[in-house]
Nucleic acid binder design. Structure first.
Lengths: 234, 234
DNA sequence: TGTACATCAGTGAACGCGCGTTCACTGATGTAC
DNA sequence: TGTACATCAGTGAACGCGCGTTCACTGATGTAC
């Protein structure tokens, strides 16, 4: 392995990102299933077999793209409320949810890569689990913060021992202290966000709710209500 | 056109469904993007060019599969509460939501065909809009029935003129009388259902909430609470 | 500083495969008199 | 009921295209003495 301080090392790093960048361009135009190493090589002015110096095969490239996408989405969600007062939990929730949608609309193909139909013949390796969970964690963390600040409305128990146990296990897995009932709302909130964005990207709202902004904002506000998030210090 | 009472007519009808059936088998094994006319022909013991007597091209077959899938899903949802008392709105809601999930888990590829990543290069024609809307209508209709029976909790106004106008337009489009605020909840409920099922099919709950039954039931119950649906005559 | 060797990026040809769609055709089924 | 013609299902060959991956190779970049 050449270090990053040799010309080779720098060229290699550049090429790795060039490949991903071209892959993303293709992804945006044709969808993940049509992602082709030969087309990427063509666009880069390189012979297709040359790519195997950088990625072991097509699946390895897909995995890299998936991990990058999770990381980007997590970062988008996590930084969305940077300008808001830490105690403005409701506004922060809204900002984070909106960031998820904004990212998805800006990068539909990458969103579909994460939450759409599994790519035929591709099986996501373990490495993608951590980055995938980080997205959920970015939303749940806010709820945990609100809980720590005593800013969550007390919710009725979930009323299912199985679910209660699962929720506790997941909270531990995330390393976050969230009351089970609140976590249940947060997780199904992730479902709502993913579902609404999926429907929007799939054109299911065309002719009805387009633009979807108002519907999405209402749904997000509703979720905040269920969590009992207060607007903050005003 | 040979009528349906000639040997040719019957053979033709049979072949049309045989093709779809083989297509569904392939869909289940490889995903929609990999659907191939040649493979279907091979499975049917027919030469690939022969299929063009039945479907103008690959897209036409995809369209037929999509419409069938919407129709099946709608039927599954619509008949899910047939055994329940008409006034047991809450139980009926739960039954209908559960039917959607059950159908999706039984037919994951067909669900993804409807709500997953758009098939590359395929543009859904207008004919699919009606069947797509029918699924939503199957869920909203129950809410409309509850509203007509005075069984919906009065909800606060949605607080957005844009959204209010959209909701009214959609209600008219569906031909259903639903208070705007309740329709907003119902539509975002569709988002929640699609999102949770999408996450489940994508393996996002593995190691956390599997089996997802309890989480799903809780989310559906929560939605019923927001609509204020009563359990019925007890 | 200069030379000998090792590393590795990128080439070009090849393997073996798959696809959608068109076209002229043969032979069986259906229709009209 | 029997014959002449029209319809149409299915054939087989072909067009033109794309793909992932392997392999032996050349030539430039890097390393160790």
């Amino acid at each position: 392995m050449a270090g990053p301080h040799t010309a080779r090392g720098r060229a290699r790093a550049q090429m790795l990102t060039d490949i991903k960048q071209q892959a993303l361009r293709q992804l945006g135009e044709e969808g993940a299933a049509a992602l082709s190493l030969r087309a990427i090589a063509r666009d880069l002015g390189v012979v297709s077999s040359g790519l195997y110096r950088y990625y072991a095969n097509r699946d390895a490239l897909l995995t890299a793209l998936i991990i990058d996408a999770y990381d980007d989405l997590t970062a988008a969600v996590d930084t969305a409320d940077a300008d808001l007062a830490p105690s403005a939990f409701r506004d922060r929730w809204i900002a984070r949810c909106a960031a998820l949608r904004r990212w998805a609309l800006a990068e539909p193909a990458r969103f579909q890569l994460l939450y759409g139909t599994p790519v035929p013949g591709y099986r996501a390796p373990e490495d993608t689990v951590g980055p995938a969970v980080a997205v959920d964690a970015a939303l749940v963390r806010l709820v945990a913060d609100a809980a720590a600040a005593g800013a969550l409305r007390p919710l009725p128990a979930v009323g299912s021992e199985v679910l209660e146990a699962q929720l506790e296990r997941v909270a531990v897995g995330l390393g976050l202290a969230v009351p089970p009932a609140a976590l249940a709302v947060a997780v199904s909130a992730v479902g709502t966000l993913v579902g609404l964005v999926t429907l929007e990207l799939g054109g299911h709202f065309v002719g009805g709710f387009e633009p979807v902004d108002a519907l999405f904002a209402h749904a997000v506000g509703d979720l905040a209500d269920r969590l009992g998030l207060p607007s903050g210090p005003a």
